[in-house]
Amino acid sequence: MKKLFTLGIALLTLTVLAACGGDENADASGKETIQFGATSGPYSDMVTKAIAPLLEEKGYEVKNKEFTDYVQPNKALASGDLDANLFQHGIYLESFAKEHDLDLSEVIIVPTAPMGIYSNQFDDIESIKKGSSMALPNDPTNLARALIILEDEGLVKIKEDVDPLRASLRDIKENPKELEFVEVEAAQLPRLVDSEDLSLVPGNYALAAEMDLLNALALEDMPDQYRNRVAVKTEDLDSQFVKDIKEVIESDEFEKIIDEEFQGFGKPAWMKEE
């Protein structure tokens, strides 16, 4: 009996150790599957091509759910249907979370498709003629971005006392080429490359229209507030799976995939500082 009792204790000890050990690459909490959410297009591709393979090397199974709107990914994250999402810039994340009383936080900023100036009429910024028509996005956030690009390229000058991130057409102080601005919904801007002399197209819409980012006359030097980021529930920020997401995005392997598969994407400040 004594031998049987000792054997039983030994077996029990081994079972407990095995349960505690598990896959040494898995989340310390036992999490083995990460459910991502991303809008269909380049950021869903970024999850499946650049983030998921590196997380899988750490022992996770990664699933990615695609969305076609900008509302459900955050609601699904807050409800626990997603573990992380990738589709939004910082200004949108902050305002959406505040408006809907959601406790969400960013993990890390990722390379993002920049807005660009596209034209079938001109080959470069210098050749733009006076009085040319230019299509711009009509929503305040993208319009402000567009005006920043135009000022960077010397096409307009914004009043000094205006916050560039909130600038509108009425804040233009100088327009040396007397450009005629046409404001439309951002999703329509790729089509207006044909009908207007120039069109300022956000990167996600350019890619959806199968435009080559590198064909732009100029690409924005995007402020990090406008770059997309991975977001999670704030309560998960210190979880191992979130630390692992951040680690793979900070890796050289991730940047190599971006350089090969996502040409023209602007890199965030933390990448440029490396």
Rank of each mutant, 00 (worst) to 15 (best):
N215V: 01
K2P: 02
K58E: 15
S199F: 06
E61V: 15
L217W: 09
N120M: 03
V242F: 06
N74A: 09
I172S: 02
G22Y: 09
D123P: 00
E196V: 00
L136H: 02
C20W: 13
D252T: 09
E180K: 14
I149S: 13
E61P: 01
K267P: 04
N25A: 10
T234L: 05
E24Y: 06
G264T: 02
K256R: 12
G80A: 09
L55P: 03
V242W: 04
L219Q: 13
E24R: 12
F5W: 11
K58D: 14
S40G: 10
G266Y: 08
E153R: 12
V230N: 01
P223S: 09
I34A: 05
A269N: 08
I51W: 05
F67W: 13
D171C: 07
V242D: 11
Y60C: 04
L200M: 10
V201Q: 02
D101F: 10
M1D: 15
Q35K: 15
G59D: 11
D171E: 13
S168P: 01
I149K: 06
Y118V: 04
M222T: 15
H89T: 05
L143W: 04
I128A: 02
R191L: 09
N142C: 03
H89R: 07
M271S: 08
K58F: 10
K267V: 07
L219Y: 12
F36P: 06
P137L: 03
T33W: 06
L179E: 01
A269K: 11
S168G: 14
E260K: 13
L14W: 13
L147C: 03
T68R: 07
T13G: 12
V107S: 07
A218W: 04
E66I: 06
L200V: 14
N64K: 10
N25E: 08
I109D: 03
I128V: 10
I125G: 03
Y118K: 03
T141I: 10
E66N: 14
L86N: 03
L14S: 13
Y70M: 12
L4T: 12
N85Q: 14
D244I: 05
L14F: 15
L54T: 05
P140F: 02
E106N: 06
T141Q: 09
I9M: 15
A10E: 07
L14A: 15
D244Q: 03
E196C: 08
S251E: 07
E99G: 00
E160I: 06
K267L: 09
L189E: 02
G37C: 11
K98E: 15
G30Q: 10
L55D: 05
S40Q: 12
D101Q: 15
E185V: 00
P53M: 11
G30S: 11
V184N: 04
A187G: 00
E210C: 00
L200C: 09
M134C: 11
I149H: 06
S133I: 01
K49W: 05
